[in-house]
Design a binder for these strands. Structure first.
Lengths: 190, 190
DNA sequence: CCTACCGATCGGTAGG
DNA sequence: CCTACCGATCGGTAGG
């Protein structure tokens, strides 16, 4: 008989394994063994292996969207929005490091409709960042003869953070975010 | 009988498939079919599937190292080195887009000694970038109370370029590099 | 969630 | 490079 809460446990374990070995590099048996059950028993909880990948990446996408949307919609200057947005992004990565890794690194293994669904949410997320930068230009606080490149710079940082961010560092997620914003705004030339 | 030049063709095809579907998502039969031969026949040219991944990533690593090393060792100011380095990096990505994708995205599928070998070359490459930034600090042209963050910024951009760079854009690799350097040096705040 | 199993496919090999 | 094949493993299922 399926145990209560078992499904969440399976998701967490799949998330960890996908982040370590990749989706295609992880087998149903890797997951079931880490759960202490047999391969076939996993299917009392899920329908397909791809279900796991989809649920992990979809939750990841929602976490990023939920955290950024209210900031973009808020009534503060763009410069402040940028700062809050980078903070929020790093905090989501921090709170879901393994899920973020799967979200950024493995989502392309999805197929068909599910691939498109996640792609859409990713586009939506990138659109929110673009909105902040565009606002900053309208406000005259960002100089964007290079709007496209500024966007790529911001997204590069965001899409790469999960690769090096570890929660056991000296600095808080907030401090890291603030330094990055400062760097992006003013550069590191003297 | 093995055809001359066949091995290079196999490498190119494997490179394309790995970049599209990932290493574990690509089968020996995918590769052999794209070559127009049978699965077993592939083994007249290679010993294992992992050989292909290793050779692709190792060549990728060497291409990046070969292009950056003489710049770091040259006798020009750090600011100029940074500019030349970003240009060189983008040019390597441009000239080997699929190999760069495999190098940045699939290298962790390597195992054992080969994993370590590529990891070492990656560390070496990152070390060269760190050298340029450190020189800039010594010269007094980079302000690096945030040396670590400047490095992460530069590496983020470098590690993400293969995701969006397409050779059919309006701007040349050089122009793109120069805009990025300008952004990194001076930021996009007005 | 286990027992028992399935067809398909995997990476790879022997012999020519 | 083909023919012919291998053992292992894959994702997944039926029946309890």
């Amino acid at each position: 008989m399926p145990r209560r809460g078992r499904r969440e446990e399976i998701l967490a374990i799949a998330c960890r394994l996908f982040s370590q070995k990749g989706y295609h590099g992880t087998t149903i048996r890797d997951i079931s063994e880490a759960c202490g059950i047999l391969a076939g028993s996993l299917y009392a909880h899920i329908n397909t292996k791809e279900d796991l990948l989809f649920e992990i990446t979809d939750r990841g996408a929602d976490a990023f969207l939920r955290s950024l949307t209210p900031i973009v919609e808020s009534d503060v200057p763009a410069r402040q929005k940028l700062k809050l947005a980078v903070r929020a992004h790093i905090q989501v990565v921090e709170a879901n490091l393994e899920a973020a890794t799967v979200f950024f690194h493995e989502w392309k293994a999805l197929t068909g409709e599910r691939f498109s669904q996640i792609q859409e949410k990713r586009d939506q997320y990138e659109g929110l960042w673009a909105t902040i930068l565009a606002e900053g230009v309208r406000e005259g606080i960002f100089q964007l003869q290079d709007e496209k490149f500024a966007r790529l710079l911001v997204l590069s940082v965001g899409n790469w953070i999960y690769q090096w961010y570890r929660p056991d560092g000296e600095l808080s997620a907030e401090e890291i975010a603030d330094r990055f914003v400062s760097l992006m705004l003013h550069g590191f030339a003297r």
